Amino acid sequence: MLFGGRAKDLPYPGSTTVSTINGGVMGLTHTLALELAPMRVNAIHPGIIGDSPFWAGKPAGVLEGYENHTPGGKLATMQDVVETTRFLLDNRGISGQHLYVDRGSALI
Rank of each mutant, 00 (worst) to 15 (best):
S19N: 10
R6K: 11
G4K: 03
T17D: 15
R92H: 15
V25Q: 05
G96Q: 13
K74L: 09
F54T: 10
K58T: 10
T77I: 00
G96F: 10
I49R: 01
A33G: 03
G65T: 11
H30D: 13
R6W: 15
L75V: 07
I48M: 14
S52M: 01
P46A: 07
V81S: 04
Q97E: 15
I49E: 03
P71Y: 02
V25A: 01
M39E: 15
N91V: 01
G57Y: 13
L88Q: 07
L28K: 05
D102T: 01
M39K: 08
Y12H: 05
T84G: 12
G24R: 10
S95F: 02
N68I: 00
A76L: 06
G24L: 12
T20L: 12
G72H: 14
D90P: 09
G61N: 06
A106G: 06
E35M: 11
H30E: 10
A106W: 08
T70A: 05
L107H: 00
A60P: 15
G24M: 13
T70D: 01
G65I: 11
P13Y: 07
N42R: 09
V62K: 08
G65P: 13
L89A: 14
T77H: 00
P13R: 13
D51M: 05
D80E: 04
D51Y: 00
T84C: 14
D9W: 07
P71Q: 00
M78V: 14
A7W: 03
G23M: 04
